[in-house]
Design a protein around this nucleic acid. Structure first.
Lengths: 120, 120
DNA sequence: GTAGACCTTGACACATATGTCAATGTCAAG
DNA sequence: CTTGACATTGACATATGTGTCAAGGTCTAC
């Protein structure tokens, strides 16, 4: 599929998709006209990228581990990639813990506010 | 306490603390020499800021809701602040869900990799 | 009074992901 | 052919939080 379709199907701008490619996150064949041609599985790749991005990984890190995550390579390639995945997994867990705390702070404030609301 | 002490106790740079103040997140009295003087509770404020920051809120949003969170004002002030808190609370929950998914992706990759590891 | 640690403001710099714009090529439909 | 939608590359811009540096005031201790 062409880049426009991939953009539509993933809700990611063409600008971003080309950027991902430049960083080695995404691959495409080129037609005779020079247009990028994406495989069907690119959709899944892009979706994974979005998840990882919104989890706080940066594109460079995602580039490092995505091929392994997508099964392009096997047995966790090498120890560096395995270590990276473990590291990022830990970071995500840590962030989630912080966010749980933040969520708690906000929830408690809402409760307190509700209880004190005029007419309650 | 002076800004240096607050910085040490919260592990936040003086640069950041002054920035927070400029954005209205943090308050300080000024001594005759012009030095900032922070109340004890500023420590807690800064810690909350860090939690909220690492949960994806930006400083402008934190500035909007922090006074309420710290109990400086009561009964959730007004509907705008309440709405903001609810909105951000929801965003955090959504992000946590995404992160749970990301974490899952990474964990599954690690498992798969482990099982296929040479000698296993 | 001078050294050293601390404070002040302001400006400039950086990283990161993405938006935006320009100049241009491709191609299907009329 | 021209129009319109889509593609290409490259450059510049933006937002956000923070680092860093400069030029200087303050205060303690020797």
């Amino acid at each position: 599929m062409l880049i426009g379709e991939l953009a539509t199907r993933t809700s990611v701008s063409t600008r971003a998709l080309r950027h991902y490619e430049k960083l080695g996150l995404l691959h495409s064949e080129r037609g005779e006209n020079g247009y990028r041609n994406y495989a069907e599985k690119s959709v899944e790749s892009v979706k994974s990228i979005q998840f990882l991005l919104s989890s706080g990984l940066n594109l460079a890190t995602i580039a490092e581990i995505l091929p392994t995550l997508m099964g392009d390579r096997c047995a966790l390639d090498n120890d560096a990639v395995r270590a990276a995945i473990e590291r990022e997994s830990g970071k995500i867990a840590a962030r989630m813990a912080k966010m749980a705390h933040s969520h708690d702070i906000l929830s408690k404030a809402l409760e307190k506010g509700l209880l004190r609301r005029p007419g309650t």
